[in-house]
């Protein structure tokens, strides 16, 4: 909280610290959702500028800084995609999008951290139908209702798949979760 309070007081160095801690995640979210490094950079700029302007509205009791930042980042990236034309929904997968990421790996922008790999493994272990709905929601910006309509499956089914998928990830990734 101290960091966000300093940002609220317009301390640019504090914003730099937040960027150092979370810039890679924000940029990665922008890349996955908006689809290109250029778009991701624009999204990252928008996100941290929004943080700079909106830090005063952050309330710790409503959630962690990470959760707050992630909401801003997803919204900015989804908005970017809606404004500039985004990739079709079938391209949203919870697996690393191989074609897109491979290109970046060549440029050595990807650091395949152990943590990221552990998450990917947990995601891969989900049943496909759970993985797909979570991906459409998280990366595609679709609501459960929209997913149900597009996939032609009952809303209740979408809801339970999201819930089960997220619960499994929570078990595997949370404290004491299996490696």
């Amino acid at each position: 909280m101290a960091l966000v309070a300093r940002i609220a007081a317009q301390d640019a160095r504090a914003l730099g610290e937040l960027y150092d801690a979370y810039g890679r995640v924000v940029f990665g979210v922008g890349f996955r959702i908006a689809g290109s490094p250029e778009a991701a950079e624009e999204v990252a700029q928008d996100v941290f500028q929004a943080v700079w302007r909106q830090a005063r509205s952050y309330r710790a009791e409503r959630g962690s800084v990470r959760t707050w930042l992630l909401a801003i980042a997803r919204n900015a990236a989804i908005d970017w995609g809606r404004t500039h034309g985004r990739r079709s929904n079938r391209e949203y997968s919870l697996d690393a999008a191989p074609g897109l990421v491979a290109e970046v790996q060549v440029e050595e922008r990807v650091i395949a951290s152990l943590r990221a790999e552990r998450i990917r493994v947990a995601v891969r272990m989900l049943p496909t139908e759970q993985r797909d709905v979570v991906a459409l929601a998280f990366w595609g910006g679709l609501s459960q209702t929209e997913i149900a309509a597009r996939a032609g499956i009952p809303l209740g089914t979408v809801k339970s798949r999201i819930r089960l998928g997220m619960e499994k990830l929570r078990e595997r990734l949370g404290p004491g979760g299996e490696e």
Binding site: R24, G28, V29, F31, E41, A44, R66, L94, R115, R120
Partner: peptide, 22 residues
Amino acid sequence: ALGDVAWSLAESASLDPPARTR
């Protein structure tokens, strides 16, 4: 706890932004 899971999903997509961005 579920927010931590969402953060993990985001984290798994982490990428280095261009150096100029900061």
